[in-house]
Design a protein around this nucleic acid. Structure first.
Lengths: 192, 192
DNA sequence: ACTTAAAGTGACACTTATGTCACTTTTATT
DNA sequence: AATAAAAGTGACATAAGTGTCACTTTAAGT
């Protein structure tokens, strides 16, 4: 009985992502989004009460997608393979670390839905952090990872490494290999 | 003959920095700044034509301060000491990498002063990058740094490492030491 | 005491974003 | 063909930011 929609949820989240990456959280407006989707601004309010609700909805979608893939890490055997898997996954979802950054900017909101979303995002973030931490712990147990460096720095480094701008357009496979080498063994040669 | 000023340039740049870090480029407003400085909004227009001019002026100030210190690196002898010096300097000026990020967001502006500022910022950025690159090159020449990893990744890693949030409030000295260890030798133990 | 000029103010016109809502369009169902 | 319901629109009121400017305040120099 309903009229055909001019955009899918996928379209909408894709546009949201692009605008967030380009203009940042504070620069995100419904006008920009409507323009991108080629609909009127009012249409978007049919689906979302406000910016915070839309953005948190998008972030939850993105995080759940990422976590669903991350969960497959459990199946893989040893630490090395798990780590490689994690890195590959991260570079397939480069938006995730950016969104974690942007997520910090969302102000407290009186809207009930938004409050729930922010709580859910917290859970998802925690879950993701836990996965990484378990990987680190596993590496430590397997005597592969140094015990001297705080987990938060290792995890932080892994996530920040995605945000290094690849201005010289180095091919992705080479880029990831170098990032991995940096994370695993650092920039210095071995001193004998 | 003039009335006493209610704020110094230092006050203004400090407030600008805080607002930029808290609200991002798009969230920076003259209203916020005026409020922070406890003056009327109109006052700020006595010194700056607009947001872009103010922000670029602040960034140039910050970059020049950083570069002036960075130049002392030349005096220091070997690579290891220079690298330690760089890291210490970075953690003394944590705003710099953030500002480089924020600097990317400044849109083209018709204002002549702003155009000049953006050009100058480009120069300063280039100069800073060059300093880092020279350090890397020196390390490579001294056979201390791997030649396999692109310079841009090493420099990127160094700069991104500052942005890792220290949520558990690990003491700065320990924090920096761990970051350095990660950058130099990575997270993995040596495999024999 | 008077002058002068920089420092500061707040009201004004303008622009842009927000959220709402009565209304129109489309399309499957009866 | 009539109708129900979701999709979409554009005008409206409201809020917040921008840039300007005539005006007031302050304090040093005469």
């Amino acid at each position: 009985m309903a009229r055909e929609r001019k955009f899918t949820t996928g379209d909408l989240f894709l546009a949201t992502e692009q605008i967030l990456l380009q203009h940042g959280y504070e620069g995100f407006t419904f006008s920009l989004l409507a323009e991108q989707l080629e609909v009127s601004r009012g249409t978007i309010y049919k689906y979302f009460e406000n910016r915070e609700e839309l953005i948190t909805d998008y972030m939850i979608y993105e995080m759940e997608k990422f976590l669903a893939e991350l969960k497959q890490m459990d199946v893989i055997g040893n630490f090395d393979e798990q780590f490689t898997f994690l890195l590959k996954l991260m570079f397939k979802n480069t938006a995730v670390p950016h969104m974690i950054e942007i997520g910090r900017r969302i102000p407290v909101n009186d809207n009930q839905k938004v409050k729930q979303n922010i709580e859910r995002l917290g859970q998802l973030h925690f879950e993701m952090y836990n996965y990484c931490q378990r990987l680190i712990t596993k590496g430590k147990l397997e005597q592969k990872i140094k015990t001297s460096i705080p987990d938060s720095i290792m995890i932080g480094m892994i996530f920040q490494s995605i945000m290094i701008p690849n201005r010289l357009q180095i091919p992705q496979s080479e880029w990831i290999a170098s990032i991995k080498e940096m994370l695993c063994h650092g920039m210095l040669k071995l001193t004998n």
